[in-house]
Amino acid sequence: MTKAAVKQKRKNSNFWERNRKSEGYLLKKTIMSFVVKICRFVLLFGMCFLILQPIFNKISVSFMEEQDLYNPMVIAIPEHFTTDNYRLAAELMNYQESIVNSFVIALTISILQITVCTLVGYGFARFEFPLKKFWFACVLMVVLIPPQTISTSLHLHFRFFDILGIFEAITGSTINLRGSVLPYYLMSAGCMGLKNGLYIYMIRQFFRNIPKELEEAAYVDGCGTLKTFLRIMLPDATPILTSCFLFAFVWQWTDGFYSKLFLGNIRLVSTSLSRIVDSLAAYLQRLQGTTVTPTVALTDCIMSTGILMIIVPVLILYLFAQKGFVESLSSSGIKM
């Protein structure tokens, strides 16, 4: 008998002995925890499957030929393996061009947004000034008001853009900023981009938790306001800033609303994806010379491929920065 087995046996006998001493309580508890474990596993497995299944389904569909889609025998593994769908979807979405555009825009916009939101969040967290409550209520307003409410007039605002009538006085007409990128950068610089109120809120929450002594020590040692912010506060805030940045990037990447409103003329993956069905119809029409409506199966197949193609870059980002997304956010503690 090996040592481990002896140990095991002693443990076992101990278990029963202990069980007898506790009048069956120990056994009951062990069984209970085992049952809980199994229930938890089943539940979690089911829910994870629920979330992952559409992705797996899309992956398998995207490799199928059209005839496989009609074949009821084919469910998960394609019979005729093909990568043509990817080629077609890439062509329909102008993938190369739009992915570069999307990347540049999402990156610059999210850096700009997070920079500004950090400044504002820091201002709200560490300084006392008159009307602070009022301005913070405004931040909450920004979180609460759906951008759709003001989209109509924003539309006009940028269609006939002017600063205090200066341009009209000089050139005689207002500037049409619609279709250019500028309005969106302006809005981002003014913290009015996609979900910026939320970022301000999260960053403020983080900075509030930094002890005041740190700031005071810096002040005693001769740090000015700006220097304290740059040298002391920013390095501490890296986790929350990373997670906000990742959010900003991902949401900007897939955003349809602001992109449609302001960036209509620029090819982005999100907007070209939402148009992919129409482009498919147009493509088939060009190919065959007559008006054809693409079949449901083919449309969905191409659409799944398109969705996969725009998800994959974000998914890779997510895999690498998963900790940044989940852990830093949940440990920083969002509280009202």
Binding site: V116, Y122, C138, M141, L154, H157, C191, M192
Partner: peptide, 14 residues
């Protein structure tokens, strides 16, 4: 000064 971007943005774009 720190929250100035927000105030400007809020007034102009909101």
């Amino acid at each position: 000064i720190f929250i100035a971007p927000f105030i400007i943005g809020f007034l102009v774009f909101m």
